[in-house]
Each structure stands twice: as C-alpha cells, then as structure tokens.
Lab assay of single mutants.
Amino acid sequence: HNLTITQGKLFFHYNPKLCLSEIHKMEEVSGTKGRQERNDIALKTNGDQASCENELLKFSYIRTSFDKILLRWEPYWPPDFRDLLGFMLFYKEAPYQNVTEFDGQDACGSNSWTVVDIDPPLRSNDPKSQNHPGWLMRGLKPWTQYAIFVKTLVTFSDERRTYGAKSDIIYVQTDATNPSVPLDPISVSNSSSQIILKWKPPSDPNGNITHYLVFWERQAEDSELFELDYCLKGLKLPSRTWSPPFESEDSQKHNQSEYEDSAGECCSCPKTDSQILKELEESSFRKTFEDYLHNVVFVPRKTSSGTGAEDPRPSRKRRSLGDVGNVTVAVPTVAAFPNTSSTSVPTSPEEHRPFEKVVNKESLVISGLRHFTGYRIELQACNQDTPEERCSVAAYVSARTMPEAKADDIVGPVTHEIFENNVVHLMWQEPKEPNGLIVLYEVSYRRYGDEELHLCVSRKHFALERGCRLRGLSPGNYSVRIRATSLAGNGSWTEPTYFYVTDYLDVPSNIA
C-alpha cells in the first residue's frame, strides 16, 4: 500500500525493539523526510534493546553428524571492536523451508527459537588472519532439518551509529543413524509349514526405512522333555500350542467401542483428552525405555581390526524358502538304536541362519518350516543398504507352526516275539517326523474274553527296548493296539495285532 503524509511529521519514542533503520525507511515511504526535528525521533529510546544489523554474515563451514552440527561463519568486528559482546545463534526444527525470524513471537518477546549466546573469538592483530567464530550444536535429532541463523550482539553506541551483522536463515539436516526397533511384532501360524509375521514401523526411523531383515531359527525343545518319565503317576503330560491366527481386521481397528449394538453396526467412541494424553505418555515412556535398553543392555560386537582377528559373527547367506525346513542338525536320541526319531534339535552355532529381506511392506510369510516346531524370529529395521547396512537392534518374537495331521501315527506293522515265561516283546517304529517329539506310547492289549488293559511306555523305555515287553501273560489269544502321544496330543491307534500265548508248562520236552 502507498502511504503519503502531505502535512505533519513523524514522532517515535520509547520503541526499544524498533531499529532506527526501520524508522528511516518509514520517513522515505511516507514522504516526511526532512520535516522531523532532532528530538522527534529519539536516538536513545528507539532500538536500544534490539540488534540492528546492516551487514550480512556468511557461514564459512558446515559439518553434520547424526546428532551434531558444527558451524563456522566469517569474522565480524565493528569499528570499535570492544562493542562486540558476542553472537546469538538461533535454531529450531523446520520440516519445511518457510521459516521466518519472527515465527511464534508474542507480545512478551518470546519466540519459538532456541538461542545460544556465543563469546567472540580472540581478536588477531592481523586483519587478514582473524579467527572464524563458530559453535557445535549438540543433542539434535537424527535425520531432522533445522533452520539456523546467527547475528551479532553489540553494545549501545553513544554516537548512535547503527552497526551489526546478521546471516540469512539456512537449512541444515542432520545425518541418518540406526533406527529404533520395529514396533509390535506379531507372529502367527496359518499352516503346519508357515508363519505369518506382521509389525509396525519404528517410532524413530532416523532416516528413510529402506528394508527390513527377518531372521528365523528353529528352537530346540526343553531338555526336561527328553529326561522326564511322563508315565509316572502324578506327572502331567506336557503340551505345546501353536500360535493362533490373526483376529479379523475389524476387531483390530483402534479407537473402536468394545460393545456392539445388537441391531447392527455401531460407531466408534472418540477417545477423551485424558485417554489420548495417557497414550502419549505411555508411548514416550516406551521410547525412553527402549533407548535405555539399547544403550545399557546391548553391547556392540567388536569388529575385526587390522591384526587379522576374525569377526566372530557368522556370515549372512541367503537361502531359498524351500530350504528352511531342514535348518537344524538332527541327532538321534540314543545312538545305539537307529530307529528312534531325530527330534532332539541342538543347533550348531556355526550354522548360517536363513533370512529374508523385506522391502516396502511390514509383513512376511515364512514358508518351508517344520510342522509343530518353535521358531525364534528376529526382526531388524534398516535405513541404508549400501555401502553397508545400517540397521536397528533386533526385536524378537516366537511362534510355533501348526501340527501336521497323521504325523504322530505309527507307520509300519507292530511285530512281536514270544519268549519263555510268557513274555512277549512288542516292537514298532517311532514316527519319523512327529509333531514336536514323542513323549510316550500307549499300549492297549486284551486277552479274548477279558477286559482291555493299558500300559504306558516312556520315551526312554522305548529307546532301550525298541518297544516294550509284556510279562506274566496268561495263555490265550491276544490283540494289541499302540498309539503315540506327542507334544500336540495323541496320534491314531494302530491296526490290531494278534498273537497267541501258550502255557509254557505244557511245552513238550526233548528229553527222552
């Protein structure tokens, strides 16, 4: 807008934040220059609390790290170098490059900038070799853009010569660093050979998330399962459950009422301010606690030095998902009996873990797994792929695949051998790939016309006998059925096997 004052003059007093240069501009645009008398524009009460600059400061050096910015700028000295009290560095987070010096300023003089007072450097006698002032900004957020400017702080001049310097606002972004852990990993099994893994992005990506790394490792069953005799009275049979499938998407929606109208769909109840505040506090606490764990609990591995020492970490090797089922080394339970199943799973520490690289999504279907087997899954978020990966501390989750139908069934015939004193040795093959492992066998036998009897055969007993022995049988026709019990439950009964026990007292003698 054009402003013209045809008559009258300007009068400025007691404006401590208004620089004289701005008042002189007002004289020019209003056409009143030359009308004012000496005392109409006070030299001592206008701009006496402001830094009124008329020179431009330029930054000469900028260096960044993930949490620091090192700045240096060209030296500046007023005509009387004693008038320079120091520099004021202003900075704040700036997602967009549209910041002005006066953003967030209120009537009390406060604003949204963080201000650092910096002492002037030592003055050199040689004007050509003056030290460049600077400042190291610490405690910054990774991968965050900051708006920065600097200006001088000078003393009051009796001659009211307006001098000083100020830089333009520059924008500097800190470097990326390792992201925080992925949030809320959930693993479920939808079949006997697959596990579905879902997660949420890290709360602090500290860069642009480029991919996720998912490692999985087959877990050995508890050692007590191999040692305890679950045929003993009072000892509860062990059981394991597989990871249940995901709930429906509708039930997972946030901010939804727990109660549904019987007449149909209901609208979600909005969260109160107290609920939102509580969630923010919980989120802040979780982030602080995660940072504490990362800094205190997890110790970084030592990389190899120039002395030739090897990095103890196993090298990563990509495998196809079809090879995942046989990740671990199978060892027989008892070496003397080769027909026992290889369900003991000690994992070799030198073995390469299978892994998958996930790009542009937060889910993965891990296939080719062994049925009813526990897996430990390790999830890392990465925001750099080359020249070397920059990934987060791992988040861990466990899951067990679903049982395989008929995996616990005894394959092959049940054979028998009759000894003296009416002892019958029953023999059968253990299931080759049971659900988890076989903890015991149930032997059901009966003599024709009598009630059915049951015998429990422990895992250890089966390994020693290759089956079991029935003792003290009365003469007669017998039928026997056997079924295995694994961590997933009972298998199917075998087809009945028949044998006849004679009275050993009636056996004919070869003595003449």
Rank of each mutant, 00 (worst) to 15 (best):
G374A: 03
S243C: 12
N422F: 15
W216E: 04
A263D: 09
S479R: 13
I276M: 04
G308L: 09
E290H: 05
R376E: 01
R318E: 11
L228M: 07
A399R: 15
E417S: 13
A395Y: 07
G308R: 12
P387F: 12
V397G: 15
P431I: 00
Q252P: 09
K287Y: 04
V359H: 14
S248V: 06
I511F: 15
P300C: 06
S262D: 14
T340D: 11
P475R: 09
G325R: 04
D250Q: 10
I418Q: 10
P245A: 11
G234W: 07
H416G: 05
Y478G: 00
N435W: 03
V345S: 12
T288K: 08
L473N: 03
Q384E: 12
P338C: 09
T241M: 06
P434M: 08
C231T: 03
S367Q: 08
G374V: 08
H454Q: 04
S341T: 11
T373D: 10
R376P: 00
H454P: 05
S283F: 10
T328L: 10
L379W: 02
T303S: 08
S320N: 11
T347H: 08
C267W: 01
C231E: 04
S257I: 06
H254W: 08
S474A: 10
L280T: 10
A463I: 10
P403T: 04
N360A: 10
E260K: 06
Y292W: 06
Y504L: 11
Q384I: 09
V299R: 14
R481G: 04
E404D: 08
L277T: 05
T415P: 01
T303A: 06
L453M: 09
S239K: 15
F298H: 01
E249H: 07
N383W: 06
A394H: 15
Y292F: 11
I410S: 05
P332M: 12
N295K: 03
I276D: 02
D222E: 08
Y441N: 03
T485L: 15
R471C: 11
L455S: 11
H254L: 11
P244E: 13
N295T: 05
K271S: 06
Y478S: 01
L237W: 14
R483T: 02
I276N: 02
S284G: 04
A484R: 02
F215N: 03
S304R: 06
C266N: 10
S320D: 11
N422Q: 09
T288V: 12
H371S: 12
E265S: 13
E221G: 15
P244I: 12
T373K: 05
I410L: 11
Y504W: 08
L232N: 15
Q380D: 05
Y292A: 02
S251K: 14
Y259L: 08
C391M: 14
E433I: 15
Q219K: 14
P338R: 11
D385Q: 12
A488D: 04
G374N: 11
T502C: 12
E282K: 04
A394W: 13
K236V: 02
P332D: 09
Y212T: 09
K287I: 03
Q384R: 08
P354I: 10
C231Y: 07
E282G: 07
S320C: 09
L470F: 08
T340C: 09
A336P: 11
K357H: 05
S392V: 03
E362S: 08
S315A: 13
K278L: 08
P245I: 12
P349D: 09
E442F: 15
G472L: 08
S392Y: 02
S509V: 10
P403W: 06
V327D: 11
D204T: 07
P238I: 02
I377W: 03
H454F: 03
T307G: 05
D229I: 03
A220N: 13
S492K: 00
T347A: 12
T303V: 08
K317Y: 08
